[in-house]
């Protein structure tokens, strides 16, 4: 009787070990793939929805506003700075970081320039009307 209970205990210990290993493997698998297939589906969803939003939002624009709209669209496109900041983030000086910093600088030129230019165009528009 006691033999069986010892065997049972051993078995349950082994099962516990196995389940631990399995969960670690699953974690490693998720880490190595970075949840990537999900991310692609998510990305495609965003892309398609953004196409519709862009189409409907920009469709009925007054011709006089085409230039400022181009200006603000250009300014918003510098949201690439998000990627640039992530690239420039790490402390250690690598080539990747300097690429990131260069991209931060270029995007910053565009952010400030873009919004200021749009503002100037709009103020011109206001005076005329």
């Amino acid at each position: 009787m006691s033999e069986i209970s010892i065997q049972l205990e051993n078995l349950s210990f082994k099962a516990q070990q196995l389940s631990d290993q399995a969960s670690q493997l699953a974690l490693a698998a998720v880490e190595s793939s970075g949840g990537h297939s999900d991310f692609i589906i998510f990305g495609i969803t965003v892309l398609v929805l953004a196409c519709f939003v862009g189409y409907y939002v920009v469709w009925s624009v007054t011709p006089a506003l085409h230039s400022p709209l181009m200006g603000v669209t250009n300014a918003i496109s510098s949201v690439i700075i998000v990627g640039a900041l992530l690239a420039a983030g790490p402390i250690d000086a690598t080539i990747s970081k300097y690429f990131g910093l260069a991209a931060v600088g270029l995007a910053a030129v565009n952010i400030f320039g873009g919004f200021v230019v749009t503002n100037r165009m709009l103020s011109m528009f206001k005076k005329k009307s």
Partner: peptide
């Protein structure tokens, strides 16, 4: 102003190239 917007926009393109290069050299970021 219109050509300035075009000139600024070229910088975004260059920034995107830099970001992709950076991601290639340090994907963990």
């Amino acid at each position: 102003l219109p050509q300035l917007v075009a000139a600024f926009h070229s910088l975004v393109g260059l920034a995107a190239v830099f970001v992709a290069a950076s991601a290639f050299y340090n994907p963990s970021a």
